[in-house]
Amino acid sequence: MKADFFTVKIKRTVKLNHRTIWVEMNQTLDAQPGQFVMAWLPGVGERPFSIAGSAPLCLLVVDVGPFSQAIHQLKPGDTLWIKGPLGHGFSLLGDAAILAGGGYGAAPLWPLAQLALSQGMNVQVCLGARSKADLLLCDAFEEIGCELTLATEDGSAGETGLVTGVVEKILKSKKIDGLYACGPTGMLTALASLAKTYNFPYQLSWEALMRCGMGLCGSCEVPQTCDPALPPGWLACFDGPVFRYP
């Protein structure tokens, strides 16, 4: 793998909600679910994105700042610069998986769900967000045959509360071979602790400030305060973004 940029063309963009678009490129990328790319727009900047689809390459882009706003402006035929795939992704275990996504953490779970179903696994997806309008990819997960449970903080869809609550209910009641999750740090910390309590193997995709994306600059270290099971000096870009335990 060589970490230089190559260009892709935007094939189409689809508006998913009030601040999120799905961006589909004109070419595939040989990548595992959970790996990421660095996307560069010359003169604007460079940011890491979970790979939301690899054939063709797709990204899920939430409007959180100037860089994502610039991506939202791109039209079919426009160019985007990509470096990757980078890092280590998920690796599926057993027959029954629970996939938990917080907000745009749903992105890497989408290709993972497709892969798990193609291997004949039972896939339970739990998605959480602030409110119904912030939930992402719900219909998509359901259409391909995942069991879907939702949680919103304001109660506008699914259960009222955090996605960790619905995950705990399932962990208590069902035989699950692995928990796979992506979302905000607090959510992942809570899930790591839950998984240990109920003794389930877990794989969590951590988000951190990424600069070089190549394991050298040290910016994206995820400290053990996030999950005591992390080894000291664990780097999201290089060792992760997915951390597997045990």
Binding site: G45, R47, C212
Partner: peptide, 15 residues
Amino acid sequence: NPVMVEWEGGLLNAI
């Protein structure tokens, strides 16, 4: 960013 890139002969960085 970008602060690092790989090229044919090595890396180039400006952290």
